[in-house]
């Protein structure tokens, strides 16, 4: 099925080439039935630039740096939705997911200079209850480092997809395997094996209007026992679950829930209305209504 040539009658003309670009360090693919105009592309680029400026833990001029210095910062449109989700993830995981985990990541070497060298003992994140938030405005204790790695990428996928929907498209937005599907027909998505990227452990049937995100500790690891999924309560990398996939109404929820599954079983995430698959030391598991097949 490499050819996308349409049957002559059902489609009057071929679908446009997917729009591909690199942003926030990952490869994006946007599938649409109509070309995305230059103006619309520039609009997406502006959105991504603005969000990176506000939320990146590695910018000295950004919102995260100002928060760290003790300022009260308005994190802009959409921030309330993301921070509300973090409230839910925090409660569902008894504090294992906490957006103030940034300092703990720095200690383990996931820092602005990307030393990837551990330079201290693991540190617990400041309690999320120490943050004060009104709407999109946040204040955290001086020195606390905001890190939205658990759900931020999915949230950005939603923001990009929403902007394209508002421009009249029915897009499927894929940022390195985190996918918001606003197209008109289901798509099939392979679930990448955490030990071998040429293998799939299953296939998801992703219906229009749903999102799929995956998380795995395999690729973002930089040393013995060191990777990016930290338990905020201890500052130590989680053990046990090595990969997870979640289907949800939004990519933000799917992304955040995929991270939460490293700490709690899916029953704890019932309020988020998700279907999930995950791999732990006993093998591959799915929730009863997971929309797809797994090869076990």
């Amino acid at each position: 099925m490499a050819s996308t040539r349409p049957s002559t009658r059902s489609r009057p003309r071929p679908l446009p080439e997917p729009w591909r670009f690199e942003a926030i360090g990952t490869a994006w693919t946007v599938d649409t039935s109509e070309d995305v105009s230059a103006e619309q592309r520039a609009g997406v680029a502006d959105l991504v630039r603005e969000i990176d400026r506000t939320w990146s833990r590695f910018r000295e001029d950004g919102g995260v740096a100002r928060l760290r210095a003790g300022e009260t910062v308005d994190l802009g449109p959409g921030a309330a939705e993301l921070l509300d989700l973090y409230d839910e993830l925090h409660d569902a995981t008894d504090g294992a997911v906490n957006p103030l985990v940034g300092g703990g990541l720095e200690v383990l070497g996931y820092d602005a200079a990307y030393t990837l060298t551990r330079h201290g003992d693991p540190v617990a994140a400041p309690a999320w209850s120490t943050a004060r938030r009104v709407g999109t405005t946040l204040q955290v204790p001086v020195g606390a480092v905001l890190d939205v790695g658990a759900a931020g990428k999915g949230w950005l996928v939603d923001r990009v997809a929403t902007q394209l929907v508002e421009a009249g498209h029915a897009p499927t937005v894929d940022a390195g395997g985190d996918i918001a599907h606003h197209g008109t027909a289901p798509i099939r998505v392979a679930m990448e094996h955490p030990g071998d990227p040429t293998l799939a452990v299953g296939v998801v049937d992703l219906q229009p209007g749903l999102a799929l995100c995956g998380s795995a500790v395999n690729r973002r690891a930089w040393g013995e026992g060191l990777h990016h999924v930290l338990d905020a309560r201890t500052g130590r990398p989680t053990r046990g679950v090595v990969a997870s996939w979640v289907v949800a109404r939004t990519a933000a929820v799917a992304d955040g829930a995929a991270t939460a599954l490293f700490f709690v079983p899916p029953a704890r995430l019932a309020a988020l209305d998700v279907e999930a698959a995950w791999i732990d030391d006993e093998g591959l598991h799915t929730t009863p209504d997971f929309p797809g097949e797994v090869f076990s």
């Binding site: 360090g25 990952t26 996918i179 099939r188 998505v189 955490p194 690729r219 973002r220």
Partner: peptide, 14 residues
């Protein structure tokens, strides 16, 4: 497999 996309942790590709 007949799939159009892959989901996992493909972040190192860039």
């Amino acid at each position: 497999l007949d799939v159009s996309k892959v989901s996992g942790s493909s972040l190192t590709s860039g």
